[in-house]
Amino acid sequence: MRALDLTTALVVGGLFAVGFHLLLQRSLMRLLFGFLVLGHSTNLLVLMAAGPPGDPPITGEGHAPETFADPLPQAMALTAIVITFGVTVLLLALVYRSWRIQGHDEVRDDVEDRRVGEEVLES
């Protein structure tokens, strides 16, 4: 079996790095783009993990089934693309709402979270 090529591995790794870098920031919009990029890279990773490139998995067009690219991860990635779209748009709505209501679109520290720790210590 042929191994994964270096180019694709670099793309996947690079997209993951960019995605995580954006995800680690406080601007909600950057978070959203980070999520989008992570979605792309994960789909790509799932697809690549199944094996090297092949012919489109469509029968009756002269390709032998042995040369097909693995169709199962494709089906998974296909629905994942659509779901990622749905979640991205939902995040976008949250960004917009945060901006309209609070006047900023940043992830602020959760004060309640900190208070939990302090209260436990006091009691």
Partner: peptide, 28 residues
């Protein structure tokens, strides 16, 4: 932040290369 993100990317890249070589079962 930059270091963690870069390391994560590198890990995924190496993981992808490693994973694609260890497969033994035929595809479902």
């Amino acid at each position: 932040r930059l270091a963690v993100a870069t390391a994560a990317g590198a890990l995924v890249a190496v993981l992808a290369l490693a994973v694609s070589t260890v497969r033994r079962e035929p595809a479902v």
